[in-house]
Write a protein that binds this DNA or RNA. Structure first.
Lengths: 132, 132
DNA sequence: ACTTACGTTTACGTTAACGTAAACTTGATA
DNA sequence: TATCAAGTTTACGTTAACGTAAACGTAAGT
């Protein structure tokens, strides 16, 4: 049997509230099973939740995150389905590349600036030594 | 003289509305000059706007973006100021690293999945050939 | 039998980040 | 001089993504 999780298990692990997880379900991002009226989360559900939260950290809306994540559970029966799936994957992949360009730019920017600051700081400290 | 821009110049260039730019000003992210009551944006203002928008694309809130961007115009007069500036830069840099880890994970994930899809598609196409 | 912990649904409240409309100013142009 | 086009302020509206509170169910321990 595969491992299952309660809503507070996942809430604890991912540091979100149960409300958040239920909200994601209402938005169609996760679809846990039920034991009576209680939600039961499978390993797959847990992975999807992790993907949603990573998407959010990267600046995607829930709707965008859903579009991407749903590709991972798209049907792959016929060749036609597979072809359109691969197309959509390329499209989303391009979005991620754009983000990587942005991110690398931001990091490079900051590194150069920080380097200049450190240089300037060293110079100031050298002057202080020289003044002793 | 340095080049200046009107609000609609920047709105066009960055594909946002003037409302958005004014909102960023109200939130303290940009502080353009004035000619009478009209706003006049300098090259520096333009750069700040670009930084804000990049921050947003990377999933930062306006408040977070401001915290980062303000470091680039922090005072660097005394050694103490420079030391705390370098500290804060390191801190923000770590945030960007975290995001890069997330992003690289997402891309790697997707690439592996896309590769499997392409393999499966080729196999289907080979079978079709064999059936001719 | 009672409390405690954990879960549920329903529904209204909140915040960030703008959108939108109204009423006004101002410089350029026909 | 009238009428644009582009700008302004003020203020209310909207949407996503939850927070929060109420009222309730249920299984486990005491």
């Amino acid at each position: 049997m595969e491992q299952t999780f309660s809503i507070s298990d996942l809430a604890r692990e991912f540091r979100v509230t149960p409300r958040t997880i239920r909200y994601y379900e209402a938005e169609g991002l996760i679809t846990p099973g039920r034991d009576g009226q209680r939600r039961i989360y499978s390993g797959r559900d847990r992975v999807r939740l992790a993907l949603v939260l990573r998407g959010k950290r990267l600046g995607f809306s829930l709707a965008e995150a859903k579009e991407i994540i749903d590709l991972y559970s798209a049907p792959q029966g016929e060749a036609f389905q597979l072809r359109t799936l691969v197309e959509k994957l390329d499209e989303k992949r391009a979005l991620l590349e754009d983000k990587r360009r942005d991110l690398d730019g931001a990091i490079t920017n900051m590194d150069k600036y920080a380097a200049r600051c450190r240089d300037r700081l060293k110079e100031l400290e050298n002057r202080r030594e020289a003044a002793e």
